[in-house]
């Protein structure tokens, strides 16, 4: 029983940095294009790739991700394509974790999903609209297939929920930095730092990774100063939406990879984080 995600985040920590986690939805601009973007992110330094399952009703996503995912949904992209992307990310040397709203997994069949994901080399899944309270089937299947399960915590989470949610996680817990949907933001804000501290208190042995709003190396450095991992989504999707393709993905990843090491050109703070 070992968690691919915990191991990889631990390796980054041993190198004195936070892990870089890149979200790319499968199927934009098409399946091949999205897989190429994932591989480019891995080659340029991403530790983990969130392989996004397209969904017709992405209630937690802002306009950038909605736009890309809408194209993938209309093209009929499904779990078979997702599993192919998972294999490609694993082959490129990063840890793939599926990011999916719940209904596509339920429709595919929960035990079948767990079995196929494990066979493809996936670490597990992040489920943004599944809370542990409703997750009995998934927790059972994930346990059986030795998969990680990542749930979310938010600034509005009570201490009791931080405890119950982190207790159900394996791999890491996803801390949503702000109250809101995905999208790039000018500042990440200190709600994230407070949330990470509260989450650590709830379960000290679990890695806490921060997402929502991080779009450049400067912000990545800020977050890396207090979190175990930095999750970047909309900024990647924007590279693809604006047609910069794998070159754009590579440049963005290099910037972020410097950021997670604590190199923060903007503020002139370049000390490596211990």
């Amino acid at each position: 029983m070992s968690s691919q995600l915990a191991e990889r985040i631990g390796t980054a920590k041993a190198e004195g940095r936070a892990a870089l986690i890149a979200y790319v939805p499968v199927g934009y601009p098409d399946v091949e294009g999205s897989i190429a973007a994932m591989v480019a992110a891995v080659e340029a330094g991403a530790d983990v790739v969130e392989v996004g399952v397209p969904y017709s009703d992405p209630g937690m996503d802002g306009p950038v991700i909605q736009q890309a995912v809408d194209v993938a949904v209309r093209a009929g992209v499904g779990m078979t394509d997702v599993l192919r992307a998972v294999e490609a990310v694993a082959a490129a040397g990063a840890v793939p974790v599926v990011m999916s709203y719940w209904n596509p997994i339920e429709r595919y069949g929960v035990p079948r999903f767990a079995t196929d994901l494990a066979a493809a080399g996936g670490a597990g899944a992040i489920t943004p609209d599944l809370i542990p309270d409703e997750a009995a089937a998934w927790l059972g299947a994930a346990e059986g297939a030795d998969l990680d399960r990542v749930f979310l915590v938010a600034p509005s989470s009570t201490e009791a929920r931080l405890r119950s949610t982190t207790a159900a996680c394996r791999g890491f817990v996803y801390a949503a930095s702000t109250m809101g949907v995905t999208g790039t933001r000018a500042t990440v804000g200190d709600a994230a730092e407070k949330l990470v501290a509260r989450t650590r208190e709830a379960r000290p042995d679990l890695a806490v990774c921060v997402g929502l709003g991080v779009s450049n190396g400067h912000q990545a450095a800020e977050v890396a100063a207090f979190a175990d991992g930095v999750i970047v989504g909309s900024a990647y999707v924007r590279e693809l939406l604006e047609g910069r393709g794998t070159d754009g993905v590579r440049r963005l990843t290099e910037d972020l990879a410097r950021g997670v090491k604590g190199h923060n050109g903007h503020l002139g703070r370049s000390e490596g984080k211990a």
Binding site: M60, I131, E134, A154
Partner: peptide
């Protein structure tokens, strides 16, 4: 917890639970 047999419940982001 809002279940009508197997139906209902809460399938929302954690941010809305509070």
């Amino acid at each position: 917890t809002g279940h009508f047999g197997v139906f209902g419940g809460r399938f929302v982001p954690e941010a809305l639970i509070a």
